[in-house]
Design a protein around this nucleic acid. Sequence first.
DNA 1: CCAAAAGTGTTCCCTCTACACCCATGC
DNA 2: GCATGGGTGTAGAGGGAACACTTTTGG
Lengths: 238, 238
Amino acid sequence: MLNLKKIVVLKNNLAHFNSVFSVDCVIFGFDEGELKILLIERNTVPYINWWALPGNLINQNETLDASANRILYELTGVKDVLMEQYFTFDGVKRHPQGRILTVAYYAILRLSTHKTLKPVTDFAKDAAWINVKELPKLAFDHQQIVEKGLEKIKNQIKNQPIAFELLPEKFTLTQIQQVYELILDKKLDKRNFRKKILNFNILKELDEKQEGVSFRAATLYKFDKRKYTQFFGKGISF
Amino acid sequence: MLNLKKIVVLKNNLAHFNSVFSVDCVIFGFDEGELKILLIERNTVPYINWWALPGNLINQNETLDASANRILYELTGVKDVLMEQYFTFDGVKRHPQGRILTVAYYAILRLSTHKTLKPVTDFAKDAAWINVKELPKLAFDHQQIVEKGLEKIKNQIKNQPIAFELLPEKFTLTQIQQVYELILDKKLDKRNFRKKILNFNILKELDEKQEGVSFRAATLYKFDKRKYTQFFGKGISF
DNA sequence: CCAAAAGTGTTCCCTCTACACCCATGC
DNA sequence: GCATGGGTGTAGAGGGAACACTTTTGG
């Protein structure tokens, strides 16, 4: 039980100990020609029944990175994602319950390997991949967090070949171009794009072709990790 | 006084309410051909008498940005600096007193206008500008925070003309080049540098010359804010 | 006249850009 | 045979990198 001494200590520190930390995750995926993000439908107040980013309070003795992974898993069933922190949002008026500071994480992943989503706690009612261009109204300041995340990957895709992490193992050049166009939000010239991306020598042409299309089948490519490693750091710009 | 109800509420929330937020500031300045950062000498345990970044706990009802400004002022006497958040450090084992999460801020400023430093609280014993290349051992994980800050401005100087914020109002081309060389940590070709920087059309050549030097006096330049604004966003690369 | 830094052009190469038509395939 | 996307080349412009000597000034 609480003894008086403890209470006094608590009270003295109160000014500094009534902030709460949380983590929100912006997870990007690419599917059917669309850039999507992973959202949950909240099952708790406040904002019950609203769509929101997977996010929750962090635990004690848990690093931020570990929190992000745990929370993402609990709310969506998605596991083992390498996320990166990109901004800390200042929540003086952010949460009706009081002050919350939120560290925002993002990641980019192969949507095809994470199609089935299943929240493992009842904090979330449901989870789904939603087209970035058709987002519903989001809880809290999640709209803003998503926007900043989009900016972030826009900058990153110009400097690191992250596009491949969105694609299936084997992909066509047109698919990569689509990813770039979606993220940069502009049309790119097909010939110039292909020249450029092939010049980096980080792709391996396969003997296979696309299947099941009703037009000329495109050659499939694979991402060459060994060359990528050499390449890393140089950067690409479009 | 505390009533029982309040205590219970406190206790229930305890798991989430015993993290503490702090802010650390990495302030860059340029002087006498050296890139310096602003450090304080701590006057409190832990790490009493150690050099450290200006940093402290944030207050309730204070935005992160406001905290950073207040803390910088209290510990160094430096006021009204536009700082930018760049990373949140995860302090599970960071502080002997318990868990602390630290939001790191950086700024770049004209050292000449902030030469006199004077802590206004006795949390800091002293404050000083220290050459980045000759840093003492720093308290906590401040070494790491500084390194990440250096990376940050390295990336930024390639894309935004932040160098001017380090220089006095009137400066020579050689001085800007020095700033670039210090931050990028490599030698640049004089002719190419001058061509490039002048081509951006963000400098205004003055009728004045350098004074008090025992060699040919260099032309002074001024930063042209109007042209800068048009220019902003295009980026520079070296 | 010497030391110290200021100031100044050219060439080569590579990369970016703009641009349009034929090819293979499934239906 | 037609609709659909796959696949290809070239010319011109602009920017980056490499490179060395003359000028000005104070002491």
